[in-house]
Design a binder for these strands. Structure first.
Lengths: 352, 352
DNA sequence: TTGAAAGCGCTAACAA
DNA sequence: TTGTTAGCGCTTTCAA
């Protein structure tokens, strides 16, 4: 005999139906029944009833009581970008595998929004927070700390807890060198023909710029202040920067190091206003991987960051009791032009 | 005088500190105090205390009591794709604007996973569920229905509640026609040179195929069974299909209608194994928009679905009391080659 | 092997 | 204008 059917069944309903107490039902349903020495048969009975009544645990109640929620949070700068969306995809797979519920939220690289987002997540008693690409991870840390919430930094390091980031310096060196080597010996690239566009004053950008400059000096003999054109992470700001550069010199550099695929989109916006011939022998290196970008009509070298590795490492580290915060570096990978790498989607089973 | 500081302050702490009762504190903090006729000064006092103690509401407790949570769910097939990631980005902005907390989860187009995901979300008492691109939306409906959870379908329609989808038939017609018109009058495309790759037996694919076939018949005089090559939504399956086609005929069709950017990635994988000259005069139409794909070295026509419009409409409809379930169609937009459209990221403020 | 009872932090009648 | 009280559904001692 069904109950209201609009109302979900509770352990009390099952308690009545089974003739056991609510605490017995609870133990059976949350898996602690073995160590409570509950009879196999009682357990069976209750489980059948639960199935029949379509019982599902009310996680809010469980969470309130146990001050856990089963929710694992990932805070992202933005969703709409292949780097971060693959981060979300990978993160989800890991969380699901542990039987928990992923909750992915973005906070636009705005420190205030980051803090608010963290507070919100705390108020839902999430169990762990992965802070990815935060502008101000240490402020987020304070909030987590105050709530006793385990957390870790990814992509951009903080100073209060462990961080897992790409080796941006090394990645940048590899990319810069690869850009330079694209040019033939009889028409080599000169220092004043290679510019870096994009990024801002964050650790990743600083490291990438450092690698870029070092390699330029080593391989091209020199570098100069203006070879760095920061544009934040914004297609439109990047577009404007390219326009400006072009207007001043009537051409783009022969070679471009674009810091992040987001800014690469700014280059596309610029291109859409100009004839394609203009870019016939442009060489672009992009610090980020996007499968479509790899096949553009000019050589595009890309750096793919090891998202799977970062997430895996972060899951390892987040449970470790914190000693002194350390930064773990993962080496990113150079991707040759016209390369289609497999990604997190390839792990999913195909339903046809 | 601070409390434990590791423990979060509760309304009881504030109740003691302020000398008011817990219910007064509660009313002040959750905004119902005006109608409870609480003195402005008491309210002020309590709010100051709350600030000072860094009080934040325990949403689990509030949710348990009020059987709401402030969580709004979006169920996506996958994250790592520009269509769905822009969906997530847009959805987030809408939810945030309403002061609620977005929770975006993917379920791999697997009906069983869709159901489980829905159950999980229900168990957290989410307030509304947006079901995007679900393989079996009606099963998800049953779960929501049983829990009294408001929900709506996006992208792929269901029969039990309202749905907001792209006008796939019309979009497909537009795209197919545009593909055909890419070819010059003196060397026109013939029916046997245009194939559709990708998709499966879902409503979107069926409609796209219908539009494709209709336009082929109208403009090219005929169509044939084999012009449709379903590959599911999977880069790898698509790659295999292209390989197979190529092996059998030693060439690709002159023109391709690729159903979804996910399958377009399969085409890239195919291309990476072949010299670029092979694709010198290929024309591709893709039902989905990706900014990088738009600039590939051959003409790429794309269809951008109206994500912002779909989300907006869905938010309108979800609160409407359900009469007979209706399907709302939004017209997607044809995107010419070499076009960089602005997206949901452009709405964010730029922090430099 | 099980049950009774307290309580997680909050809301919302109902009193006062 | 405010306080008292009774839960929301679950977990977890402690007792039996």
């Amino acid at each position: 005999m069904k109950k209201d059917s609009r109302k979900k069944a509770t352990i009390y309903d099952l308690s009545v139906l089974s003739g056991s107490s609510a605490s017995t039902v609870s133990a059976v349903l949350n898996g602690t029944w073995r160590k409570r020495r509950i009879k196999e048969s009682t357990a069976d009975l209750i489980r059948n009833l639960a199935e029949e009544q379509q019982y599902t645990t009310n996680q809010q109640a469980r969470g309130l009581r146990s001050s856990r929620s089963g929710l694992i949070g990932l805070m992202l700068p933005v969703h709409d970008n292949r780097y971060f969306s693959s981060m979300a995809q990978t993160f989800e797979a890991h969380v699901r595998k542990r039987g928990q519920c992923p909750i992915v939220v973005s906070s636009s690289r705005d420190p205030e929004e980051e803090r608010q987002t963290a507070e919100t997540l705390v108020s839902y008693s999430i169990d762990e927070l992965f802070i990815c690409g935060a502008t101000d991870p240490d402020s987020v840390h304070e909030i987590c700390e105050a709530a006793g919430l385990k957390h870790i930094n990814i992509d951009l390091p903080g100073t209060k807890v462990h961080s897992v980031v790409s080796d941006n310096y090394e990645g940048s060196r590899i990319l810069t060198e690869a850009i330079i080597r694209q040019f033939p010996a009889d028409n080599p690239l000169s220092s004043d023909e290679l510019f870096l566009f994009g990024g801002r004053n964050d650790e990743a950008s600083r490291e990438r710029i450092r690698g870029f400059r070092d390699v330029k000096r080593e391989l091209l003999g020199s570098d100069f202040e203006a070879s760095i054109q920061p544009t934040n992470y914004s297609p439109n700001t990047a577009r404007v920067a390219f326009e400006k550069f072009f207007n001043e010199r009537q051409r783009l550099p022969r070679a471009l190091f674009v810091n992040s695929s987001i800014n690469f989109e700014g280059l596309l916006r610029f291109m859409s206003n100009h004839p394609r011939e203009l870019f016939a022998d442009l060489v672009v290196g992009c610090f980020d991987y996007d499968p479509f970008a790899s096949f553009l009509p000019f050589p595009v070298l890309m750096i793919r960051q090891d998202v799977e590795g970062m997430i895996t490492k972060a899951f390892e580290l987040i449970k470790e009791p914190l000693s002194t915060p350390k930064v773990y570096f993962l080496r990113p990978e150079l991707v040759a032009p016209r390369t289609a790498l497999s990604g997190p989607l390839d792990g999913l089973k195909d339903i046809v």
